[in-house]
């Protein structure tokens, strides 16, 4: 009994903690890349850059139809054929970043399109420069439309990162599977992992709620 208790302290709990921490790291990095790429795609498609716009549209379509798991295997197990060696962490960031940039770009596009054109006209009437119009008029309103959906994707990505365990990145699913394969207590260990994921996505939900409130407050200031 005492031996098993010491196992928990010396092995299991640290591995759960390491796994959870890496899940958070991967989520943050993937979400950063997805947001930047998604914004780029949305802006290019809105400005209708010839050639590039169609290319990005095709990229979005393909990304929405291919499962992340296939992309992970493609990047991690077959890019070495071309002499491109990426760590599991880098591969996972690239895959989740690219995959969710497609979804986020649609969110951003929708958020921008929801702003009535009269806002642009009003800005022109007030003789605001283009930069000022974007920073003070368009973006603050677009952000308010975007933040709730963006927060949903934060939680989606958090849960999707479990797939990175299949390409040996040592996040929470990987560590759990590793431990359960040693002691065969799958039920217990996956229940614990599920509980940790649950708490983390609850935390992400709280963060989303705070962001929404933050941007809603800004509106009252302007009004």
């Amino acid at each position: 009994m005492s031996e098993s208790v010491s196992m928990w302290w010396s092995e299991y709990l640290p591995l759960f903690a390491v796994g959870a921490w890496r899940t958070i790291q991967l989520t943050v990095m993937s979400m950063l890349l997805a947001t930047v790429l998604g914004l780029l795609i949305a802006v290019v498609r809105r400005m209708r850059v010839p050639g590039l716009s169609q290319l990005f549209a095709a990229f979005v379509q393909v990304m929405r139809l291919v499962p992340e798991l296939v992309l992970l295997f493609l990047v991690y197990y077959s890019l070495p054929e071309l002499g491109i060696l990426l760590s599991a962490f880098a591969s996972a960031i690239i895959v989740f970043g690219a995959h969710y940039s497609a979804f986020l770009s649609e969110v951003f596009r929708g958020g921008l399109e929801a702003i009535p054109h009269s806002q642009v006209e009003a800005s022109k009437m007030l003789q605001l420069g283009k930069g000022v119009m974007w920073r003070r008029v368009i973006l603050p309103q677009a952000v308010r439309n975007i933040v709730p959906t963006w927060g949903n994707y934060l939680q989606t990505v958090l849960k999707a990162t479990a797939l990175a365990g299949t390409i040996t990145y040592g996040e929470l699913f990987f560590q759990t599977n590793f431990m359960a394969n040693q002691n065969f207590r799958y039920f217990l260990f996956f229940t614990i992992a599920a509980a940790i994921y649950f708490v983390m996505s609850w935390g992400a939900g709280k963060l989303q709620h705070r962001l929404e409130k933050h941007f809603a407050r800004e509106r009252r200031q302007f009004a």
Binding site: K159, A160, T161, A162, L163, G165, F173, T176, N177, A180, F184, R185, Y186, F187, F190, T191, A193, A194, Y197, F198, S201, W202
Partner: peptide, 23 residues
């Protein structure tokens, strides 16, 4: 709803396939 929306599908798949036989 809270449990199945708050945890990854992969965990649910493994939990049901590897976990349930133990009970």
């Amino acid at each position: 709803l809270a449990v199945f929306r708050g945890t990854p599908l992969l965990i649910q798949v493994f939990w049901i396939f590897y976990g349930l036989p133990l009970i």
